[in-house]
Amino acid sequence: MRGTAVLLAVLLTAGCSGAPPDGTDGDLTDGWRPPPSPAPFRPAVGRCHETLAATASLADYRPVDCAELHVSETYHVGTAADAAVVPAAGSAGARAAFRECSDRAADFLGGSWRTARVAVQVVWPTRAAWSGGARWFRCDVTTADLDGRSRTSRTGSLAGELGRDSPLELGCFNPTVEGETVTTMRPVACDRPHRAEFAGLWRAPEITYAALESGTERSAAACRSVIARFAGLPDDSEMQYRTGWISYNPTRTEWLSGERRVRCFVYFAQRTFTRSLKGAGPAVLPVV
């Protein structure tokens, strides 16, 4: 019994004070990476969506491959300034986000989105996600009518679309006019008979949206100057006798976001052309 007890004591001592097994250092934690800190959901760039929304939550985040049918495409995700609540429409934070989205859209598309049948939208986190620490805003692009309201589905990414000949670029149109209201603008190739053509943009002053909508004289003068530069005409009082004009203002939402560029079109009620009027000059567009 004594010999057995001595042997047991030796074995216990060896088990408690002996060297660690070969290939180990005896420290069970020093080789482990600490778990990452929890972070709020942040959407991905380069994904497309079946709808165009003003807010997005993780529960509703179901992006699709851009080769599939979709309505909008995320081309940039920015970081908003910290604030207690999601920036409201027209606030400094909302305008800053739209300005960043607009600038990044030109890089993504390869040209100015305001010169194409394209619209830009800022998508914000939900209020619950914002309260949980989300501070992102998503920049989405979509095809749209000139009034910025009708969105259409498409397949394929819009990356670089305006850096090459694109059917989305504003060109020639056949408008439908009821009284003094343009109800439709149907795109048509400029070598086909048409009565209107995109001439360029003018930047409206910092006025109310109601003043912009009612300021016909301001729009007429600004668009005539744009048309004069586009068509190679003298920018004088006789411009009103050479061509008509159509203008498309930013939407109310775009205006609140800080967008001030107004689209201008050469327009003729009766006369048609089968060529572009860019640089046409007084011989083609005389005083009548």
Rank of each mutant, 00 (worst) to 15 (best):
G111L: 12
E161H: 07
D140A: 15
Q270M: 04
H49C: 07
I227M: 09
R154D: 01
Y248A: 15
R151A: 10
A80H: 09
A116V: 05
I227F: 07
D191N: 13
E169F: 02
H49P: 06
L7N: 04
L58Y: 05
R275G: 09
R135E: 08
R192E: 14
A211R: 05
R252A: 11
L162E: 05
G244N: 07
L233Y: 04
G148D: 08
L212G: 13
P43L: 11
F108G: 09
R224D: 07
T155L: 14
E73F: 11
S150F: 00
P282N: 02
E206G: 09
T29G: 00
A222H: 01
A14Q: 10
V64H: 03
A211D: 14
A19I: 01
A44N: 07
G110T: 07
T216V: 15
A96H: 06
K278F: 10
A211N: 06
R203A: 11
L8T: 10
C101G: 00
E68T: 15
R33Y: 09
T184R: 08
L162D: 07
R275D: 11
R95G: 01
P250E: 05
A210Q: 12
C264F: 08
D103H: 03
P286E: 08
R164L: 12
A54G: 15
G163V: 14
L109Q: 05
R154N: 00
A9M: 11
R117K: 10
E73W: 08
Q121W: 00
R99S: 06
V284Q: 07
R260N: 12
T79A: 14
A159Y: 03
